[in-house]
Amino acid sequence: MPSKSNKPYDFAAWFTWVDNPVRVRRVVRALLIFCAVLFVIDLLYHRHAYFGFEQSRGFYAISGFVAFAGIVILAGQLRRLIRREENYYSPESIDGEKYPPNELSIIDNKQRSEFTDSQQNESITSRSTAHMDQGGDK
């Protein structure tokens, strides 16, 4: 967890719940309740619809659930059929190769958690110009 000491506001705090099983369970429960409420409203409210089948109660709820689950499951089956190793086409295809790092500004702050934007910008500039001079070696 990054420390919050020097930063004006850490947006990461918005998401910390995803790593907390208890809070995740709470969110799932909230989603369940939300869906249940929607379903009940749907039962009571008479919608305008283009097609007859669309009028039927809970059509959207069921189709949303079934379509999503169906796609995921079918896709899993599809993978069995079409999956190949990464350099299947050629060892030099873009799937197997690394993205040339001189184009990027890879910064992995495993130790430092502090990093200001101005520093980053400087480092990019110096990096990219340095690589231009070297003719972009790997």
Partner: peptide, 23 residues
């Protein structure tokens, strides 16, 4: 209402496939 239902229940399906390991 219909759009929220579609998305909400699809999200439920996501939870479902994650829990069951189908994803």
């Amino acid at each position: 209402l219909t759009q929220l239902q579609l998305l909400g229940f699809a999200l439920l399906a996501f939870v479902f496939v994650m829990k069951t390991g189908l994803h």
